[in-house]
């Protein structure tokens, strides 16, 4: 059940990205192009997602535990550190350059555009570098 629900969540997430146009880097870059061909539609996608997630999380967490796990695993950190800001800033530069963030890039893999096939392995390498080289044993607590 746990695996089925996770698979279903993945397919729904990917379909949401496809339907909304997030899997199209050109559209993402138009969204980020405030002073040019600005396409605000992705802001509504994000707001729509939050509009469902916020009340949904609230409802779900009225339960003591999730359905197929013994506890909710929520990020506990509330401090602001340089990692958070530097990481997010770096992420944003890459997002603007390529028009992909991780979810849409993985979702776009089966369409096999050349750029996607370059981006995804590079992204995995970037993650691996951050995990094993730069951060060492730094422990991931959020997300």
């Amino acid at each position: 059940m746990k695996f089925f629900s996770t698979l279903l969540a993945g397919v729904l997430f990917g379909t949401g990205l496809v339907v909304s146009g997030m899997a199209d880097p050109a559209k993402v870059q138009n969204f980020l192009d405030l002073f040019g061909r600005w396409d605000p539609s992705l802001a509504f996608v994000m707001l729509g997602a939050i509009g469902v997630t916020m009340p949904g999380f609230w409802l779900v967490q009225k339960r003591a535990t999730p359905f197929f796990s013994d506890m909710f695993h929520l990020p506990q950190r509330s401090d602001y550190d340089a990692h958070l800001v530097a990481g997010a800033a770096t992420f944003g530069i890459g997002w603007g350059l390529g028009g992909f963030c991780p979810g849409p890039a993985i979702t776009a893999l089966p369409i096999t555009a050349t750029g996607t096939l370059i981006f995804v392995p590079a992204m995995l390498i970037g993650m691996a570098i951050a995990k094993y080289v730069a951060l060492g044993v730094w422990c991931e607590t959020s997300n």
Binding site: D24, M46, G87, G99, A113, G115, I129, T141
Partner: peptide, 28 residues
């Protein structure tokens, strides 16, 4: 979809996104 197929651009973009997402504890 339209994806740039410029190798350096997409490779650098991927590296930055992957690295930044892990260091910053999350993505979009």
């Amino acid at each position: 979809q339209f994806v740039s197929s410029n190798f350096p651009t997409m490779a650098i973009a991927g590296l930055l996104v992957g690295f930044g997402a892990v260091v910053g504890n999350g993505c979009t």
